[in-house]
Write a protein that binds this DNA or RNA. Structure first.
Length: 271
DNA sequence: ATGTCCACCTGCTGGC
DNA sequence: TGCCAGCAGGTGGACA
């Protein structure tokens, strides 16, 4: 389920537990998730000190002082739990720090992944090879989108979900950004005026920034044990609101399923 | 190359 | 109450 804001919030929640700590133990409960875990994961991480945490697209990065970076992806249902009071089904990976803190990666659907790559060779990590710019970074501009969308007949929604064009957007935030920008999700990407792409860039940034802020707020609340990172309540303007009134014009929000995913939009506000 | 669909998994919900 | 279809926020590979 996690998109960029959820992963960002998760990383921010992991940082106080992991940064500067040494890994006392790393254990796995199965061979892997969507991919096998690295066979030497425990060997290479045990005893290592964590020097920093960061995020790229929907991936979380945990750097060790041994020159390795552990890269996790939460897939659709992954979450990190902090100092869990009890074991849950689908707890797949457990980290214990030298300060006695415990982190557990739980992922019922197992669409997530955990990999270990040399920090110096992050660019060679296959999932990173073709990633587009970070939506909150300097690379996402109206001119960039205009070039990326040029001549494309695919729906703008599909293009925004393509991680090679923009890295980190998922179904929810694409629906929300398109609504905020007043652009119909089915409109061909190459048929959007540059001025409207400017509105789209602003909408993407605003939607993500607000979600990260909401996640940060929930993070501050849960200094308690057995915390779940990255999941927080958020009110969507269109996502999940089929039939309910558009918050801009009160006409019912529409939903269409394509390729197994739902698109929510307002037929009146979005053109 | 581009656009579309499906598989990979488990869990939850709503309708019958 | 019980069963089952449908749905879920991701990625990547297959196909036309």
């Amino acid at each position: 389920m996690p998109e960029l804001p959820e992963v960002e919030t998760t990383v921010r929640g992991l940082a106080p537990v992991l940064a500067g700590a040494r890994i006392a133990a790393l254990t796995t409960a199965r061979d892997g998730l969507r991919r096998p875990f690295p066979v030497d994961l425990a060997q290479r991480m045990t005893g290592a000190r964590i020097t920093g945490l960061s995020r790229r697209a929907k991936y979380g990065l945990i750097d060790s002082d041994r020159g390795d970076t552990l890269i996790f992806h939460l897939g659709m249902s992954g979450r990190w739990r902090v100092d869990p009071a009890e074991a849950w089904p689908h707890d797949h990976l457990r980290i214990e720090t030298d300060q006695g803190r415990v982190l557990v990666l739980n992922d019922p659907r197992r669409f997530g992944s955990v990999d270990l790559v040399p920090t110096a060779a992050l660019a060679d990590y296959p999932p990173f090879a073709a990633l587009g710019p970070e939506p909150l970074g300097p690379g996402l501009t109206p001119a960039y989108l205009a070039a990326a969308f040029d001549g494309r007949l695919a729906p703008v929604k599909a293009l925004l979900l393509d991680q090679r064009i923009v890295a980190g957007l998922g179904n929810i935030y694409v629906c929300e950004a398109l609504h905020r920008a007043g652009i119909a999700p089915a409109r061909a990407g190459g048929r959007i005026a540059t001025a409207r792409l400017g509105a789209l860039v602003e909408a993407i940034r605003a939607v993500l920034a607000e979600a990260i802020e909401a996640g940060g707020s929930s993070l501050r609340d849960y200094a308690r044990p057995d915390g779940e990172l990255g999941y927080f309540a958020k009110d969507w303007r269109v996502y999940g609101r089929e039939g309910e009134p558009c918050l801009s014009c009160a006409k019912p929000v529409l939903r269409r399923a394509e390729g197994g995913r739902s698109t929510f939009w307002c037929g009146a506000c979005q053109r």
